[in-house]
Amino acid sequence: MIMVDASGVPLAVHTSSASPAEVTLVHDTLEASFGMDFPKRLIGDKAYDSDGLDVELETLGIEMIAPNRRNRKKTQDGRPLRRYRRRWKVERTIAWLQSFRRVRTRDEVKAQNFLGMVQLACIVILLRLVTSPPVP
């Protein structure tokens, strides 16, 4: 799980096994942030569409934006869902992470070592963003 800001800079990374649902890993990802405050909004895919998660994040002052699942009874209005179009920035950051072979192939046996490699890749991405020349 990865959390990025509006420009695609990694803010939090959390690794876990593939068995738990993504909805249950949101709090762990928020706690694993790199010293930042909680964001005002979280954008996720349909897996994050949960009433329980919406209530929990609302108590923290975070607005959850996720497209509605097919069986949803209480739906969001169109304004927050227009922000969902910005999710491509998260996908772009994931693609940047996939450019590192050890992260892409997950050569590490231990989860702690893999998390360290992902965090190192996030640092390299951050340094590339900071040191790159401005686009005219």
Score class of each variant (00 low, 15 high):
M3I: 05
M3T: 03
M3L: 13
V4M: 01
V4N: 01
D5F: 03
G8D: 00
G8I: 00
V9L: 11
L11Q: 10
T15D: 01
P20Q: 08
P20G: 09
T24R: 09
V26A: 04
L30K: 01
A32H: 08
A32V: 10
A32G: 07
S33M: 09
G35V: 03
G35P: 00
D37C: 08
P39K: 01
R41C: 09
K46Y: 09
D51M: 04
G52E: 05
L53H: 03
D54H: 12
E56K: 08
L60W: 12
G61Q: 07
I62Y: 07
M64R: 10
I65L: 00
N68V: 13
N68Q: 13
R69T: 05
R69S: 02
R69K: 07
R79E: 03
P80D: 02
P80T: 03
R82F: 08
R82T: 06
R87L: 03
W88L: 11
E91R: 09
W96A: 01
L97F: 01
S99N: 15
F100I: 02
F100W: 08
R101Y: 05
T105D: 15
T105V: 10
E108G: 06
A111K: 14
A111V: 11
N113T: 13
N113Q: 09
F114L: 07
M117D: 12
V124R: 04
I125V: 07
R128Y: 09
L129D: 15
T131G: 10
V135A: 10
P136M: 10
